[in-house]
Design a protein around this nucleic acid. Sequence first.
RNA 1: CGGGGCGUAGCUCAGCUUGGCUAGAGCGCAUGGUUUGGGACCAUGAAGUCGCAGGUUCGAAUCCUGUCGCCCCGACCA
Length: 504
Amino acid sequence: MAEKVTPRSKDYSQWYLDIVQHAGLAENSDVRGCMVIKPHGYAIWERMQRALDRLFKDTGHVNAYFPLFIPKSFLAKEEEMAEGFAKECAVVTHYRLKAEKGKGLIVDPEARLEEELVVRPTSETIIWNTYRNWIQSYRDLPLLINQWCNVVRWEMRTRLFLRTAEFLWQEGHTAHATQKEAEDEALMILMDCYRKFAEEWMAMPVLTGPKTEGQKFPGAVYTLCIEAMMQDKKALQAGTSHFLGQNFAKAFDVTFQDQEGKREHAWATSWGVSTRLVGGLIMTHSDDHGLVLPPRLAPIHVVIVPIFRKPEEKQATCAAAQQLADGLRGLPVDPWYGYEPIQVKIDDRDQHQPGFKFNEWELKGVPIRVELGPKDLEKNACVLARRDLPGKEAKLFGVPLAEAPAKIAVMLKEMQTALFDRARKFRDDNTHEIDSYDNFKKKIDEPGGFFLAHWDGTRETEDRVSAETKATIRCIPFNRAKEAGQCMVTGRPSAGRVVFAKAY
RNA sequence: CGGGGCGUAGCUCAGCUUGGCUAGAGCGCAUGGUUUGGGACCAUGAAGUCGCAGGUUCGAAUCCUGUCGCCCCGACCA
């Protein structure tokens, strides 16, 4: 058997690249650092978008669109942000090319922009500059806006989905009349949208809590995050929600009159998740056979492989497959599947043998495979295989065709739960309390994982750990035990344990 | 940006050390036939500016210089 996927145990990075390539998710483009998202990868992102968009809408947000280009002076207005993003901005300096004999196209030196434009690395500045005109009164608040777009951050080192120079994301930007309302918003987005989406749709368990001062978003008062553990036990920041205080309102002079007629600066939040989630999805569930997709995000839920050799067998099995597909599509539409009927594919290609098809659909991560051959038809039955339970042993034989649609619907839900439970067990099994820094240094690489340790709360200590071990504080979990202790590095008092890990 | 590795057909790679005649293989692809319950087989065929640009040479995939890109490690990074 020609194995296409490098086993995780042999080379985790190569395994990841193999999955991305062989499942047809994305490839590197000829533009440095920029990827082409292929149809199967984009379909997953579309399903993520749809679920997230619904969560945002259900919590009162609306979509809008702001420009790709940001005047350099806007970016400069919020000092922390300017500093944070300066090193990774693409800049537009000219607005015209010209054809020159022998040289082809050259940048027209006559066409220099009066003010250079930055390709958005994030849109707080252009949006708050716009909000100045939109916000006059407390009656204009809250303003709850999201946008789906691309952003560019000129990264030194890129990895498909996980870190690319251009990526797709959503960024929410809200304005509020009070500090409390803005803080509630940042928390609500984190817990009711991001955590909920990660756990219930992606089946990816996440820790929730604030970042440390050193890890927060430039321009934020504080940053909340969802943080997940990948199968190599490294952490992935999967989403962030920022309380921005009045920093941007002040930088862009956004004020409103409150009920007493007083002028106040508006309070802000911003929050985002990106195509990085696709990388997280891969690294949470997939195995050495290929991609494993949680049913709620799978572009195809069920593939039916009719098995035949003679034309009359093809005719019979394909007809049965069609009938089964109709049965599945005819199930009551359940928002659980992503706001549309179950997606079914019949693979009736006759240039490939069934075994080939089984492997191919496993590589692509289709949650349920139905095998339907002459022997099954004799019994009016089919064979069901769940993607996360590989091997012949796990197949369900002799499932009556009449019962298959209902059975498959149940299996999809069971698989979703099983993936989440397995991922959570993996994370919990690889999360350790630790009190000795020497011990920590020994264990951070092998076995690795999340380490719950006391920390004195200082930037210096965090930087020292980072410099000495490459591990960072991923999050100060909301649900940590109330347990005073001593910093594992300095021995100074600590209010509770934080999560140290190596991260993507 | 520093260290290392690699760029030859869509993919994986051989050939390079020691320059030479028509640049190869496997997979994939096309056509025909036999097959078909876990990656079938036979036959025929299409497909490569040897990453790019210079240079050395009678002659460069092969040697030299430069350059671009990818991968790994570091630095950097929400």
